[in-house]
Design a protein around this nucleic acid. Sequence first.
DNA 1: GTCTATAGCTGGATAGAC
DNA 2: GTCTATCCAGCTATAGAC
Lengths: 194, 194
Amino acid sequence: MAPVALLDAAEALLLEEGYAAVTSRRVGERAGTNSALIHYYFESMDGLFVELFRRGAERGLERQASALQSPQPLWALWDTLHDHMNDIRTVEFFALAHHRPAVQAAVVDYSARYRQMHLDVLTEVLKGYGLDVDTWPPVTIILMMGSISLLLLIEKGFGLEMGHAEMIDLVERQIRALEGDRWTVHPALAHRAT
Amino acid sequence: MAPVALLDAAEALLLEEGYAAVTSRRVGERAGTNSALIHYYFESMDGLFVELFRRGAERGLERQASALQSPQPLWALWDTLHDHMNDIRTVEFFALAHHRPAVQAAVVDYSARYRQMHLDVLTEVLKGYGLDVDTWPPVTIILMMGSISLLLLIEKGFGLEMGHAEMIDLVERQIRALEGDRWTVHPALAHRAT
DNA sequence: GTCTATAGCTGGATAGAC
DNA sequence: GTCTATCCAGCTATAGAC
């Protein structure tokens, strides 16, 4: 029995029922074993949650780094952000971080690394497009795309879509103005949820 | 003993320690009584959460309606959104909604009412400012201000502020371009957190 | 209305056999 | 490594005295 089976079980529960359903008993049961193994491999539930977060964040970081090498990095970033599974994970871990300091530390750590990576790549790209970076600093473009897509996904998950079409249209018009029409979905994004 | 004391106790726990700390025992204890009264007044924890959400949402709706009557509605909206307490409430209830259908229904209901109210007021205001509403539909302005301020508050709560200064500066430059310099903080917002 | 007491679960974590 | 068994704590909800 490998610890990865426990992480997979925990992830499935997190996505399907929220973090409150991720209990040692249920994770053990879902992995076809029992709760004692969680403490053997991860010490505590805190350890399990942190490890689960790290695994997902690390995967996301690689996927985005790859996407940003696309000939259309803005389209590629916008498309990676539209991942419903990633969004649920994000919301659940934001909430978890509120009362698990170990989780909060991991969330902050990876959020900073995401932002720095986006910044490193997009600063050059946006300058290359002739964007006036004094008026529109690259980090604001990143923050806007991230915050808008997060809110839209949360609301959509609740069945609330008032203004979403207009918002998506606006963002895509801005991207188009900088980067031209979207050509193809980057291979690294081909699996993304709609 | 009035049920409002139980709501106050529940609210304090929610803001201080997150929704996981809002248990019938702790709410009763904090209100100086016991858990049985919660079931007497609210039927169940679901009932308590829904009522707590409604009370906060109703207050917020009134406060924002009042703020939007300011001579500078955009500044007023931007300022009301910068309320840290409201933000914690929002995040906690988003997470709660994920596994309490009764809470989700209330969240969706009030979110739609907020958006509609913002839209009713700002559509006229923005047209009055000469904004090109075909390029920038009012609902997109509302969604952008809401999503950006939410993400900034979440991150700030975690101690992550990379790019925040630039983002705030950008938003405030856009508001200034439409509505001029901020003059005074509207009275209805004077209590807001920084 | 408000209390105490308690039923009935479910949780995290550990001890100890194999 | 993996299991069963178990401790102890916490939860929601209800019954019944006052």
